[in-house]
């Protein structure tokens, strides 16, 4: 119940904000009868209406995970974001081994297996992408060799 009400409220605000920014869209002199604002406004309107219905007629709550699981989910997101930033400057092999290892540890908490999975995936995928599929990946940071 509560989850749907909160979700509906958040989505309602987002829909209204979306509509507000849609009214700010600049039109050009090449105007057609509808213009660039009408459809986003329409979509925002339907979204706002649906959010209201979700708030007023909520479904039963889903099984939310416990706080510790949320923490590890948050950590997973942080790892993925860091990985996205690291891929370009640090090359493929090192960030992939670390990120894959952490994700593996989070799914099944055994340090040794996770480390091996990370290193194995990193090297295996690098060989696959670089030599079998011919993608131009940078393996290690420049200037190391």
């Amino acid at each position: 119940m509560a989850s749907d009400r909160i979700f509906g409220l958040v989505m309602l605000f987002l829909a209204l904000a979306y509509m507000a920014s849609a009214t700010q869209i600049q039109t050009s002199f090449l105007a057609d009868p509808v213009g660039p604002r009408a459809f986003p406004l329409l979509v925002g309107g339907v979204a706002a209406l649906s959010s209201l219905v979700i708030m007023l007629r909520p479904d039963p709550d889903p099984d939310w995970p416990v706080a510790r699981t949320f923490l590890s989910l948050g950590l997973a997101v942080v790892v993925l974001v860091a990985y996205a930033y690291a891929l370009k400057p640090l090359g493929f092999v090192i960030p992939t081994a670390i990120a894959a290892g952490i994700l593996s540890y989070q799914i099944s908490p055994r340090p040794l297996a996770a480390a091996l999975a990370g290193i194995g995936l990193s090297l295996g995928l690098f060989v696959l992408f670089k030599f079998a599929l011919g993608l131009s990946l940078i393996g290690l940071p420049k200037g190391w060799f």
């Binding site: 593996s104 990193s122 993608l135």
Partner: peptide
């Protein structure tokens, strides 16, 4: 096992989108 498969899927997704 899932602890090899899912990290692998993630990394393939990243490389695909990055490319």
């Amino acid at each position: 096992p899932a602890w090899v498969l899912l990290p692998g899927v993630t990394m393939i997704s990243f490389v695909g989108i990055y490319s």
